[in-house]
Design a protein around this nucleic acid. Sequence first.
DNA 1: CCTACCGATCGGTAGG
DNA 2: CCTACCGATCGGTAGG
Lengths: 193, 193
Amino acid sequence: MSISNVTVADGNRRSDLIRTAARLFRDRGYDGTTIRDIADAVGMRSGSPFYHFKSKQEILAAVMEEGLLACLPAVEAIVVGDLAPRAKFRALVRAHLETVLAEGHDFIPVLLYDWRSLSDALRADIVALRDRYDQLWQSVIGELKQAGLIKSDSKVARLLLMGAINFTVQWYKPGKGCTLDQLADQAVEMFLP
Amino acid sequence: MSISNVTVADGNRRSDLIRTAARLFRDRGYDGTTIRDIADAVGMRSGSPFYHFKSKQEILAAVMEEGLLACLPAVEAIVVGDLAPRAKFRALVRAHLETVLAEGHDFIPVLLYDWRSLSDALRADIVALRDRYDQLWQSVIGELKQAGLIKSDSKVARLLLMGAINFTVQWYKPGKGCTLDQLADQAVEMFLP
DNA sequence: CCTACCGATCGGTAGG
DNA sequence: CCTACCGATCGGTAGG
């Protein structure tokens, strides 16, 4: 039981580091954030994060991995659900906006912003998860195409659509302008006839 | 005349630095590129770029400013031209794809990728140019809306559309998949009824 | 534009 | 997880 307690405590501190790093990485970028920044923000000394992670890079990878693992289930549920193509697309867009824009959801924005900062070795681990996410989108786009709601090449369509949604990270301010629901409605209305 | 020669020579070296910095910033990011990298690539010693620029930040600002100044005229010509709304939008998308994806066009991708890296003081100088560019897009979107080709809010429409196009920077590989012309056609076909 | 250099910062480590 | 530290790198500068 004491071992279990230690494990839990370690897990919490590790989670603290990941969550805090995500916020800092999102605000200042990976290179603009130092280990000291992260340690300060969670109340550790500058050397202590390396008790939980082998390197700063591994913190970045953990942020991205946790972000993907957190958002995949909801999207998978949408995809296997039996909504009509248009409604399914709307749900997908809405879920993605939540993942990317909701307060405290800093993980996927870090993935989008700082993908380049991740070393090749660690990137390989994340790519599999990212591909899974992309495939889910691809399958919904495929249904749209079959339903005649999209005419162009499915792959390019997916990339353009995800690009439009992902880029909201750069301009959307929570509480200003429209809500995420309104934004989802507008996007669907714009992209589907 | 000797003064004029010196000025020209300086201008060339300065341009070399800007162009080379743009390429390196695009490939490795602003923080991932050192002054030594840039100096090496143009055949200078590490201290010499500071003869042309006060700081690394000013090189970044110069890259972004030059990129905007270079792409504004073509877009302005399109906007004041008398194409029909749909054709005008197509021309705008095509021009923007060229700006962002054509080989050697590294300036605007740097602006998109590393906007955050620019200090507040220098960013203020660039914002005016960037706003001008955005306004040109906004006016074309406005024409689309008046023509009934777009239903949703014009500002959100512009941000989503520009996002889709800007995000191509992250996935498009010149010479692989489709050409810029095909990509422009697909985008227009997708976004307009 | 080069030489020679500095001051600061930063990721990371040894030892406890 | 802390203390104490190091080795490397980096933006930038003085003086020519």
